[in-house]
Nucleic acid binder design. Structure first.
Length: 152
DNA sequence: GCCAACGTTGGC
DNA sequence: GCCAACGTTGGC
């Protein structure tokens, strides 16, 4: 399956993802129930992910990554030092989930939101309809259209 | 920095 | 279970 993950590059960018020494990165700190449900119930090892930079100029899809783990409880929810700590969660009944990803490809030319909006094939994208969702599904057709655009 | 959209919380 | 108040996201 295909997904889009949002990140604010000021906090964590695709450059950071590319620089990870471990080669895999835990996608943690997701604290939205709809996004959580996608992670916990749908994400699988081997899935492919579009990386989107939000709250920057210009906002854009900047590359792709691969999911390299199955979902597991996000450790930061149990860490009292973490800003992502959640006292309402427990190890027996964790609220929040993570996956590990690894960078696959940085686009030579990022695809700005305006370009996505101008592309007929992408008019149904969740990104264009539900702007605030930070983990969202992408159809194979959308994914392929984006890959084609990025290689032009 | 503004503000619209939308998610979450909590009182009732 | 409703809904008002509030907080956050994210494009512009």
């Amino acid at each position: 399956m295909y997904w889009l993950f949002k990140t604010e590059p000021d906090a964590y960018s695709i450059e950071d993802l590319a620089a990870e020494h471990s080669a895999t990165t835990r996608w943690d700190g997701i604290r939205n129930f709809q996004a959580r449900n996608f992670i916990r119930d749908k994400l699988c090892k081997g899935d492919e992910v579009l990386i989107y930079h939000s709250s920057c100029k210009p906002t854009a899809i900047v590359g792709t990554a691969k999911v390299v783990s199955n979902p597991y409880p996000d450790p930061s929810q149990f860490d009292q030092q973490s800003t992502y700590f959640d006292g309402k969660s427990s190890t027996a009944n964790p609220r929040w989930f993570s996956v590990d990803i690894t960078l696959q490809k940085r686009f030579q030319k990022p695809l700005p939101l305006a370009q996505l909006k101008a592309t007929e094939k992408l008019s149904g994208m969740v990104l264009l309809k539900q702007g605030r969702l930070s983990i969202q599904p992408v159809t194979p057709e959308e994914f392929n259209a984006i890959m084609a655009l990025s290689s032009r």
